[in-house]
Structure formats: C-alpha cells, structure tokens
C-alpha cells in the first residue's frame, strides 16, 4: 500500500513523490474549541499520512457527524462528511467502488458506538481495508454535552442530571471481540506515539481501529484532560506487551476507563485476506472464459 512504484507489471507510475505534513493540511481553519484534543489528532494524521506517502488525491476520508467528524475538511484528502453513525457503510461503498483508494474513516464515540454501533461489527467481519479512527471524548460535544456511550457511570451530563446509570461501552473490547485485526489506542498529548499508531493502522492490510482518547475541553470531565491523560498514560510497548497476543490484549482492554494504555493492543500476525481481495478473486473466477482462437 505504501508503494506507488510498479512492481506488478503495471505500466510505470509517476515518479514517487515525497510528502510533508503540510501537503495534507487544507486551507480551512478548524473551528474546534481552543484546547480540543482533535487539533492534536489532525496534526498527527497529517504526519502519519506524510510518512505513508500516498498523494492526497488517492485518499478518501469519510466521517459521520459530530465535532470530530469535521476532521476530513481540515485535510486535503477527498473528504466526505456523511450521515450520523453511517460513516462505515459509506466508506465501504467507496472502497468497493474504488478499491485502490486509501480509505480512512473517522468519527466520535457517539457516532461510532451509539447510533453507528451496529455497523462496526459488520465492517470488522467483512474486513475491507479501512482505517477507523475514533476520537473518544466520552461526551456529545456538538450538541452541547449529553451522555455518550462511553460516558463513565455516575457522570453528570445534561441528559443525566443526576449521574449516568448506564454502563459505558468499552470500544477496545468491542472491536477485539468482533475480531478486528488491528486495535490500538492513543492520546493526542503523546503526539509521537499517536502518529506512529495511526501510521501502523493505515499500513495494516485489513480493517484497523484506533481509539484516540481526545479530551473535550468544554463539556468533558475536568479530570479527563490532556495533562491528566499524559500523566496517566502507560505505553504498552514499555510493558512488553506482545501485540500478537489477542487474549492478553483483551485482558488489557478490560481496564478501559480506569487505566490508560496507549499503543497497539492487537495486531493479527497473519492478516487474513480482505473483502476487496475476495471480490476481485470472485470476479476473476466468474469472468466468462474467452474461447481459444
């Protein structure tokens, strides 16, 4: 995916260009609140895309609705700010129509695990080569501070005035349980770690998931902000976690909400074929054989 040179017998491609983070920054100025974690995420994404080296016009960036879903507009990729909760199905449509595109999907925790929660398992098991980045801030920011599926139990929000009485979703365990081949977590205040994780996720050949705990400065818990996160963060690589160990990854993912592990939880050491591959294979197999001349 990272190579644009032709080693497959295709006609020679244009000479490989190198890109810098700037090439992926659009002229739109983000309108997130000052201090929002999403500024960090978009910066990390510019850097990751620069090191991937695909030109902006070969990238489709799909998002749902929410503060974080504004992110495609701030990149020079083909952006698609879609329907609330439906970014993944739309991204799948894009990928099937144009399998050579690098398709990124982004959204918030509400978009991905509340209204869009039903699409996540099926995107995972279908295993198209997509990268799904969730900016998880534990709140609905765009509609001004309502309960989200990852809001911790007991948290007071504008629709849980007396404290939430719902158990939050665990996004990491959710995707691990459905068999996602690449699962990682990052925080924007650890820029290098986050950039690396995003890059790895994009390079993973199959559906990959990155949960970025991106704090909401306006409606979020004051105890859940950048500084606190940075102090709380524990790098999985420092713990000596083996990303090939799915069961251990699930064990670590259990601590979502209390511990803040960053890095790659799980990377399938033998990535299975992707859906796009099977489509091509089937098309090939079913194509009418040309009669010998």
């Amino acid at each position: 995916m990272s190579s644009t040179t032709a080693d497959c017998g295709c006609p020679p491609a244009a000479p490989v260009e190198t890109y810098t983070a700037k090439d992926f920054r659009s002229t739109l100025k983000p309108i997130w609140c000052p201090g929002c974690g999403d500024y960090g995420v978009v910066t990390g994404l510019y850097r990751a895309l620069a090191s991937i080296g695909r030109p902006p016009h070969e990238i489709a960036f799909v998002s749902g609705i929410g503060c974080s879903s504004r992110i495609p507009g701030y990149t020079t990729a083909y952006g698609f700010n879609t329907v609330h909760g439906r970014a993944l199905p739309i991204a799948q449509g894009i990928k099937m129509a144009n399998p050579d595109l690098l398709v990124l999907v982004a959204g918030g925790d509400g978009d991905g695990f509340s209204i869009g929660g039903g699409h996540v398992p099926h995107a995972i098991r279908r295993n198209l080569d997509l990268t799904y980045i969730v900016m998880d801030n534990h709140i609905y920011g765009l509609t001004k501070g309502q309960l989200s599926p990852t809001t911790p139990r007991g948290a007071k929000t504008s629709t849980s005035s007396y404290g939430s009485i719902e158990e939050p979703v665990n996004p990491l365990l959710y995707v691990l349980a459905y068999g996602c081949g690449f699962v990682a977590q990052a925080i924007p205040s650890d820029m290098d770690g986050m950039t690396k994780v995003i890059e790895e996720a994009i390079r993973y050949p199959g559906f990959s998931f990155v949960n970025i705990q991106s704090p909401c400065v306006t409606f979020g818990d004051p105890e859940d902000q950048a500084k606190v996160q940075k102090a709380k963060m524990k790098k999985l690589s420092d713990l000596g976690h083996d990303p090939a160990n799915r069961l251990r990854a699930m064990e670590l993912a259990q601590t979502y909400g209390t511990d803040l592990y960053t890095g790659v939880f799980y990377r399938n050491p033998n990535p299975p074929q992707t859906y796009d591959h099977y489509i091509r294979e089937r098309q090939e197999a079913l194509r009418p054989k040309q009669a010998a001349a």
Binding site: Y140, T143, T159
Partner: peptide, 13 residues
Amino acid sequence: PITPSTEGAELMA
C-alpha cells in the same frame, strides 16, 4: 441529541 431540539430532552432528563 439533535440541534435545535435537544433542550426539550434535557429539561425532561
């Protein structure tokens, strides 16, 4: 939640 009607739900909550 959906703007511009969320306030009704918030008051109900």
